[in-house]
């Protein structure tokens, strides 16, 4: 009797948890699928399901020079910000990762703080400072601002990769007569490279998608893709944006698949 009761009780628990988990997973994935389907509509509205299917909005996208221009700007800024983040972030991660000192922990908190502080407030603050020192907003100020909010991802993932590194490897290398630089180049770097790549990838994606910092630090001539899309959506519901969203979703899926192969991204983010 008691055993039977317990199983019923166990079944009710498993059922409730599984059903909520399924609903949650559907809620997570559904919006992207909906946009993908709607982007192939042959009509002018964003009805789901569409009345008919076509590639016309993707063809329209081909000629949307404003979006091309904005996409190019976003890409260039994201590449520069990612490069700068790798350069500054990996060096900083090497310094703070194996140190237990107070200054290392303080620096770690400082480098991570852009992740929790409102980026819009930082964007405004940076704009005020730049205008105070007489530096006009430009692609340069965009790269600087983006680097501040993207570098934490590189630091965090590199620190995590360094924490997995066996210290005896470094000692053996030193005992065998290798210089510190040689050890770094031949032992440390190859082992932490996947971590650096994973961090750089997330940094790149978040720069490419950044609105709050770009909003304040771009000049009128530098249109950025997410801002362009946002403003288009505020005005009218354009199906071209659905096609562009489709392109971005497919590109993201492809990049994540590559990153999963190269760096084991999913394990990195749950450990």
């Amino acid at each position: 009797m008691a055993g039977r009761k317990r199983t019923l009780e166990a079944i009710s628990f498993e059922l409730v948890m599984s059903v909520i988990a399924m609903i949650a997973l559907v809620i997570i994935i559904a919006p992207s699928l909906v946009v993908l389907v709607v982007s192939f509509t042959s009509g002018f509205s964003l009805r789901f399901p569409p009345q008919g299917y076509s590639l016309r909005w993707y063809a329209e996208l081909w000629d949307a020079w404003q979006l091309h221009f904005a996409a190019k700007n976003s890409l260039v800024v994201a590449l520069w910000a990612t490069g700068l983040s790798i350069l500054l972030g990996v060096a900083a991660a090497l310094a703070i990762s194996r140190s237990r000192t107070l200054s290392a922990r303080l620096l770690d908190s400082l480098f991570m703080s852009p992740l929790v502080l409102p980026a819009l407030a930082f964007g405004l603050a940076a704009l005020m400072l730049f205008s105070l020192v007489g530096l006009p907003v430009s692609p340069l100020t965009l790269v600087i601002g983006h680097t501040v909010v993207c570098v934490p991802y590189v630091v965090r993932n590199t620190v995590a990769a360094l924490a997995q590194l066996e210290p005896t490897l470094l000692e053996s290398s030193a005992v065998l007569g290798a210089s510190r630089f040689y050890t770094f180049r031949r032992i440390v770097l190859p082992l932490i490279r996947p971590g650096i790549i994973a961090g750089a990838f997330i940094a790149f994606m978040s720069s490419f998608d950044n609105v709050p910092v770009s909003l304040f630090l771009r000049d009128a001539a530098t249109d950025m893709l997410p801002i362009r899309m946002w403003q288009d959506l505020e005005g009218k519901l354009d199906v071209t944006i659905a096609a562009l969203s489709g392109v971005l979703i497919i590109a993201t899926v492809a990049l994540v698949a590559i990153m999963e192969r190269v760096t084991g991204l999913s394990r990195r983010l749950t450990n």
Partner: peptide, 22 residues
């Protein structure tokens, strides 16, 4: 993990746009 991860890396504007459609 990949289902959970994908939205994190998909553009916020795209994800928000999806909710307008829904």
């Amino acid at each position: 993990i990949l289902i959970v991860l994908l939205p994190l890396l998909t553009s916020v504007v795209v994800r928000t746009f999806a909710w307008i459609v829904i």
